[in-house]
Design a protein around this nucleic acid. Structure first.
Lengths: 113, 113
DNA sequence: GTGATACTTAGCCTTATGGCTCAGTATAAC
DNA sequence: GTTATACTGAGCCATAAGGCTAAGTATCAC
C-alpha cells in the first residue's frame, strides 16, 4: 500500500467488522464517540483507532462540540467503493459504464452537492 | 480481524492496488500467473502472495494444468461486497426518504394548497 | 472547587502484510 | 538428457494493524 490511493484506504477501512458496524450505525444518523463505542467490548482508545482510521479514509467526518465528538457518514466516499465494484461488473458484463453512471447518478440525486 | 468473516477478507483483498488490478484483468477472462504478473515490477514470489490472498478470500479460483496455473474470477464473491454496500445505501436512503417525506409534509403544512 | 464525563495521548505487545532472495520441483522444448 | 519455463517453498525484513493499560486534558454538573 505504498502509494497514495483513496480506494486502498476505503477498502482497508471496510475490512474490519467493528468499522463496518460503525458505518452501519452512522447510516441511521450522526452519533457521538461513546454512543458508537457502546456495543463493543473494547477499550476506548482501541475504538478510537477505528474512528481515526475511518476519518483518515474519508468515510466519516467528525466534529467536537464541548467534550463530545460527533461522527457523521461521508456517503460520497462509500460511493467510490461502490462505483469501483460497479465498474468491475460493467466490465465483465460488457455493459461498459452504464452501471457506474447509474450509481453516480443515484448518488447525486439523493445527495446533491 | 480475529474472527471468521468472509467480508473481512474480501474487503482486505480489495484494499491492495495490485490485487484490484488482477481482478480488473480477470474480469476480461481467465489468465495464467505469469501473464497476470507481467505488468508488475515485483518478484514472482511476492506476486504469488497476492494470488494466494485472492484465492483464500474466495475472489478467484485457480487450477493447474501442466506447469501453468490458470486463474479465474469468482464473481459471486465480489457480489457479496457489492451487496453489503448496497445494503448500506438502502439503509441510509430509507432514512433520507423519510426525511424527504417529513420535509415535504412540513412544506405542505406551512404552505397549504 | 470537586468530581464525573468524554475523550485523548503515549507507549507496549503480538500478529499480519507486503516486499525481498535463494533454492527447489515439475513440465515442456529441443 | 539438457535446458528453459513456470511456478513453489522457506525464510528474512520492515512496517502497519489492532488490541491493551495508564495517565492526561477539557467540559459539564453540582
Amino acid at each position: 500500500m505504498a502509494q497514495y490511493n483513496q480506494l486502498d484506504h476505503v477498502f482497508q477501512a471496510l475490512a474490519d467488522p467493528t468499522r463496518r458496524a460503525v458505518i452501519g450505525r452512522l447510516g441511521q444518523g450522526p452519533a457521538s464517540i461513546s454512543d458508537l463505542a457502546k456495543p463493543f467490548a473494547m477499550a476506548l482508545p482501541s475504538f478510537m483507532k477505528h474512528i481515526h482510521y475511518l476519518e483518515d479514509s474519508g468515510l466519516i467526518r467528525t466534529s467536537k462540540e464541548g467534550r463530545v465528538r460527533t461522527c457523521i457518514l461521508e456517503k460520497k466516499t462509500l460511493a467510490t467503493a461502490e462505483s469501483w465494484l460497479a465498474r468491475q461488473r460493467a466490465l465483465w458484463e460488457g455493459r461498459t459504464d452504464r452501471l457506474e453512471h447509474f450509481v453516480i447518478a443515484e448518488q447525486n440525486r439523493k445527495n446533491p452537492k
